[in-house]
């Protein structure tokens, strides 16, 4: 047994000064420890809370969408448009590191909103959404949009209990984003391509964006629209409607047809 730390069997005697060169372990490695098998998902708690959110939303007949994009892609303007066009009660959970700017804008547009400030956090998790839903008290039969923290990386990993994940990318960000941020595009149930009114002013290859998004997520639908002009908004509303049988008032659809 090792004379200093007690490692090894009783009939072995290893003195440190004569130890072979590879006997460089720290003493605490030889402390008696026992193994506890866990074999569980790291995000098991988040996934459990997400399922809880999903079950509750389903019981209330509420369709919830997780909107994810980089900062400035136009999530809030798209929501302002959507609030105006939706026949069912819209509520919004706004995620940002700081400020209540977005929640104020959504309230001004006529919907209920709760702001979640994550501080240093770079994404929303299921626990935050659970608390936000509790505060928001969305109307049964309504629609809840969860505007995630602007970030094309971290939010992709966290299930919030949503019905669908919508990734929004704007033409000013560049057409190379799907392959640069593969996890986000692989997780998307729908990709919205925003700011199409700016296409004449930027070098953006829509075909490349669609092709690359589908290399990661075969068959994913890409909806081009401009939240500013309303162009393409009808397709977005149609997708929302078909994904959750959500009713929209056709008379307030301000979209001009795609050319």
């Amino acid at each position: 047994m090792c004379s200093t730390c007690g490692c090894g069997t009783d009939d072995a005697r290893v003195e440190h000064e004569h130890a072979p060169p590879d006997h460089d372990h720290g003493h605490d490695e030889h402390e008696r420890t026992h193994t506890v098998e866990l074999e569980q998902a790291v995000l098991a708690r988040n996934d459990h809370l997400a399922q809880h959110n999903r079950d509750w939303l389903a019981s209330q007949d509420i369709a919830a969408y997780n909107l994810m994009s980089s900062p400035g892609a136009g999530k809030t303007p798209l929501l302002e448009r959507t609030v105006a066009a939706c026949a069912r009660q819209v509520s919004v959970i706004e995620g940002d590191q700081e400020t209540v700017f977005d929640a104020d804008r959504i309230r001004a547009a006529g919907a209920r909103a709760v702001q979640v400030n994550t501080g240093a956090g770079c994404h929303l998790d299921a626990g935050m959404v659970h608390r936000a839903l509790d505060k928001l008290q969305p109307e049964p039969g309504g629609v809840v949009f969860i505007e995630n923290v602007g970030n094309l990386v971290c939010p992709a990993l966290f299930d919030l209990g949503e019905l669908a994940k919508v990734v929004i990318i704007s033409v000013t960000e560049g057409d190379d984003k799907p392959l640069k941020y593969p996890h986000m595009f692989a997780a998307a149930d729908l990709v919205v391509l925003n700011k199409t009114d700016l296409l004449p002013y930027v070098d953006f290859d829509t075909r490349r964006l669609v092709a690359d998004a589908r290399r990661l997520n075969p068959g994913v639908t890409v909806l081009p629209l401009s939240a500013r002009t309303g162009e393409g908004l009808d397709a977005w509303l149609g997708w929302l409607g078909s994904s959750a049988s959500v009713g929209f008032r056709p008379d307030v659809r301000t979209a001009t047809p795609l050319t």
Binding site: E31, R32, T33, H34, T35, V36, E37, L38, E39, Q40, A41, V42, L43, R214, R215, P218
Partner: peptide
């Protein structure tokens, strides 16, 4: 073909711990 099923590589698991 792009019709793939991912079999492995998405693991995010705590396997075991050593406890004193």
């Amino acid at each position: 073909s792009a019709d793939l099923e991912i079999l492995a590589g998405r693991e995010l698991q705590v396997a075991s711990v050593e406890v004193a």
